[in-house]
């Protein structure tokens, strides 16, 4: 559970705690297919990946899930207002994904205390697989 977080405690430039995920494995991809309902064989069948000319790749939405995990380990999910990602690269079995992020903007807007930040998911070769953005409405310290 994330500790209570207040608008006043946050500064532009603050980094969200880095999240290093376990290597993506093939069982996880099968599990994610079943959980999400995305049965595109590209993600679970190496032969289908080969036929498509790109090889077996993870669901982009699984990696978005990793990024969401990193954000909501820091800002309680109940405060999250917007979450956007651009899928910039493919993730393959055995890749190790690391998620980082930092606060880029703070503003008080019509009674809401808004914090915005940028997010990055990279693989073990330091290649970006997701570039993202979040916005959260945080409570005021009384």
């Amino acid at each position: 559970m994330a500790a209570e977080l207040f608008f006043q405690d946050i500064n532009v430039g603050d980094e969200i705690p880095m999240l290093v995920k376990k290597p993506v494995n093939k069982v996880q991809l099968v599990r994610y297919a079943g959980a999400s309902g995305d049965f595109n064989p590209l993600h679970t069948d190496p032969e289908a990946g080969k036929a498509a000319g790109i090889g077996q790749i993870a669901h982009g939405m699984l990696i978005m899930g990793f990024v969401a995990e990193a954000v909501t380990n820091w800002v309680p999910k109940i405060y999250l207002r917007k979450f956007t990602v651009r899928f910039a690269g493919m993730t393959r079995p055995d890749d190790v994904i690391t998620v980082t992020g930092r606060v880029t903007e703070k503003k008080q807007d019509s009674g809401s205390d808004i914090v915005k930040g940028e997010l990055l998911a990279k693989n073990q070769k330091d290649e970006t697989v997701i570039a993202g953005f979040f916005e959260a409405a945080l409570p005021d310290k009384k």
Binding site: R31, G34, A35, G65, E69, K77
Partner: peptide, 9 residues
């Protein structure tokens, strides 16, 4: 879904 992601929240 969270178990497939490995999110332990």
């Amino acid at each position: 879904l969270v178990q497939a992601i490995g999110d332990k929240n």
